[in-house]
């Protein structure tokens, strides 16, 4: 059987996740339980959602440096407006999604560097978050809290949510015609245009979809933490980029993998726990995430080399 490039692309992240998980179970067999798994992967759900959002932006060859501040902003809105006056809260979030769509269009029309525009937006979202919630606080909407702490039988919520997210994102981006269009814009914008599609619409929907996933990430996060803070998710910008790359995505060419992105986010979250089970000081937790990123990329390079050698023969 010949292994296709796509399968190879997904094989490395899956293998690294399983390896880490095996390591955790070996060090701490008690983690192999319903509660253990839930605790291990709880905080991975919002990160996975943010990673899918970042992946959609990267699918059209852009990069979103405002992901972390945007998720923080959503968390603040969710803990205040969405809890106190749900209708106003929904309107604010819809406005934010519309803003994202507009950004996607402006970046394309004026041919702006997405890095700089989203850099500017990161200040805007951060400022809005501080205005909404000057000090940490607020209350999570009851339904968000209920969903996040619910205990379905047999399989923990965190696992179900991750699997559902992976399947949904896969269907949406790899199987729907909209997904194909979005990836096509990343692959070759001009040919999509020549084929009669609207690049503006494709970019607007990619950005709007990304905002939807980021909004979901913010609400999930508040459901877990019960209250919000303007700086709650700043790490997500870098984590989401790392997760996409770890999961087999690339910066250009619309080459992305939604399932891989979810797995990448889970791997990054697990890296921290693995180290604490090894009794290595928590000082090195961030470093471990960097180290795992480097190792996975090295393995992928090695596999790609082997494959190209095999192809040449």
């Amino acid at each position: 059987m010949r292994i296709s490039t796509d399968m190879l692309r997904i094989a490395v992240p899956v293998a690294s996740l399983l390896l880490l998980l095996a390591g955790v179970f070996y060090l701490q067999p008690r983690a192999m339980s319903y509660n253990g798994l839930n605790l291990l992967f709880n905080l991975a759900v919002p990160i996975a959602l943010a990673t899918i959002a970042q992946m959609l932006i990267m699918a059209v060859n852009d990069l979103d440096l405002s992901m972390g501040t945007f998720v923080s902003f959503v968390a603040c809105v969710a803990a205040t407006y969405l809890h106190d006056t749900p209708i106003l809260g929904v309107l604010v979030l819809l406005g934010a999604i519309a803003t994202y769509a507009a950004l996607g269009v402006i970046i394309y029309l004026r041919d702006l560097p997405s890095i700089v525009v989203t850099l500017g937006m990161s200040f805007v979202w951060g400022g809005l978050a501080v205005l909404i919630l000057p000090a940490p606080g607020g209350t999570a909407p009851e339904w968000a809290r209920a969903v996040m702490i619910s205990k379905p039988p047999l399989v923990p919520m965190a696992i179900i949510a991750s699997v559902l997210l992976a399947v949904f994102a896969h269907l949406l981006i790899m199987r729907s015609s909209l997904g194909v269009l979005i990836r096509g814009v990343g692959g070759n914008q001009r040919s999509v245009q020549r084929a009669g599609w609207s690049v503006i619409a494709a970019r607007a929907s990619a950005y709007a979809l990304a905002a939807c996933f980021a909004v979901a990430a913010g609400i999930c996060l508040v459901g877990l933490t019960t209250s919000a803070d303007a700086n709650i998710a700043l790490r997500y910008t870098l984590l989401s980029i790392a997760g996409v790359i770890l999961g087999g995505g690339e910066f250009t060419g619309g080459r992305i993998s939604p399932v891989g992105a979810v797995i990448g986010a889970l791997t990054l979250t697990l890296a921290g726990s693995f180290l604490s089970f090894l009794r290595i000081s928590p000082d090195w937790q961030i470093g471990a995430q960097g180290g795992i990123l480097i190792i996975v990329l090295a393995v992928r390079l090695l596999l790609n080399r082997l494959e190209s050698k095999g192809g040449a023969r």
Binding site: V116, L119, V124, G126, V130
Partner: peptide, 19 residues
Amino acid sequence: VGAGVRLIMTGVIIITVIL
């Protein structure tokens, strides 16, 4: 002006400049 407005202004300025 408070910290929130200051951040928003900074962001708006960066975007305006690049535009």
